[in-house]
Design a protein around this nucleic acid. Structure first.
Lengths: 216, 216
DNA sequence: TAGATTGTTAATCGATTAACAATC
DNA sequence: TAGATTGTTAATCGATTAACAATC
């Protein structure tokens, strides 16, 4: 299906945004769009859009443009959204709960199948029909259910040990909300970091920069 | 203080990570580090680190390397973390609450000064000593307290109208957790997006890619 | 057919890496 | 002084943009 291996991460990172915009256009009742019009709506160049898409195949038609519905579906396939993978949540604090309750993972390729915490007060609870298991049941659960990824919403101090354990248990990826950085430790495991602090600091920089007098 | 205007966003995005690693090294009781050793720990090249830092000044010493504590502080200054700016939270659902309760903004340059929602059931509550105000008090509050940024944790459908209102009220930046994309609409307002869906889709792609048979 | 717009090659631009003189 | 490591210039690499023939 895919044309060749190793598409650059810059391209990959743009795919979800294309997917989102195409979804919005679809909801607007539109059916076709040219790379030029899409580029204007997204703040990119038409060239870039065409280059990006041509990493994966030929989805357009000369003189016509792209069929919105079809292109969206193709990008969905490229991202692998159709094949729903199994996720477990480690840490049912505020952030973990927010994700479990509020966030529809199935539209993003995942289904939550288990929740774990070690805090006694949380253990009885049920979140989205899933009981919160004690951490000491993690091994057994993973062996039985073979989750693909783990969502880490635990304190930084616990991240390392838990990650080690999960890698041992064959986890394939982490959605990492902790402040711990294990990009390098497990070369065969995919890590997607959501470093909220980094994001907020970037905003801080840009705000500070903006309000500074511009020196020539 | 800063050497020249318009440092590339690639560099800016790496600053918080440097800041984090230097903080960890400091906690480890270390005092100096060379660009080479830091590069190995962070998975970068020494050249890149030196290039990045030299966008802002000369923080090292030949033959010695960098003073960890000092470099960390300098990066903090560059990011503008010392000057605490005012933030308001719009939307006190699961995600909004998680941020307000759990996330220490002051270490990232911001202080939460107001929380807003329109859901009747939430309005009585107090989160981190801040009462949840009704949305119809937003105008008054902003005129009185002049917040710098707004954290948007509201449904996509409401994002556009609220953003418009806040821009009118002089907000300087958004920390955007909604699925709405207003990168282009307000050229003078700084937007930092936390598109969790995009992040999860990227993870989905990388997991799918990894498990596919590698074709040559 | 003529016009529009793609897919793709070539040109440009920017970011990363390498090299090295300066210097602690 | 000799060794280490910076700051910075030059070389390389990759990503973005421009151009255009192919074609719907």
């Amino acid at each position: 299906m895919s044309k060749s291996r190793s598409v650059s991460t810059s391209v990959i990172k743009r795919l979800p945004r294309y997917y989102r915009f195409l979804g919005d256009l679809k909801l607007n009742g539109m059916h076709r769009i040219s790379s030029k019009e899409l580029s204007e709506r997204m703040g990119l160049t038409a060239s870039q859009i065409r280059q990006d898409l041509n990493c994966f195949g030929e989805f357009g038609q000369q003189g016509y443009g792209y069929n919105i519905d079809l292109l969206r579906e193709e990008i969905g396939k490229i991202l692998g959204l159709c094949d729903i993978k199994k996720a477990i949540l480690i840490g049912a604090g505020y952030m973990g709960k927010a994700l479990a309750m509020h966030f529809d993972m199935t539209t993003n390729g995942f289904r939550l199948i288990g929740i774990f915490d070690k805090k006694q007060s949380i253990l009885g609870q049920t979140i989205q029909n899933l009981p919160v298991h004690n951490m000491d049941r993690l091994d057994e659960f993973c062996r039985e259910n073979k989750p693909d990824i783990a969502i880490l919403c635990i304190p930084k101090t616990e991240a390392h040990a838990v990650a080690d354990q999960l890698v041992q248990l064959g986890i394939k990826g982490f959605w990492n909300f902790t402040h711990y950085d294990f990009s390098l430790e497990y070369p065969d495991v995919v890590v997607e970091n959501v470093h909220l602090s980094d994001s907020l600091m970037t905003l801080c920089y840009n705000i500070s920069e903006k309000s500074e007098p511009v020196e020539e």
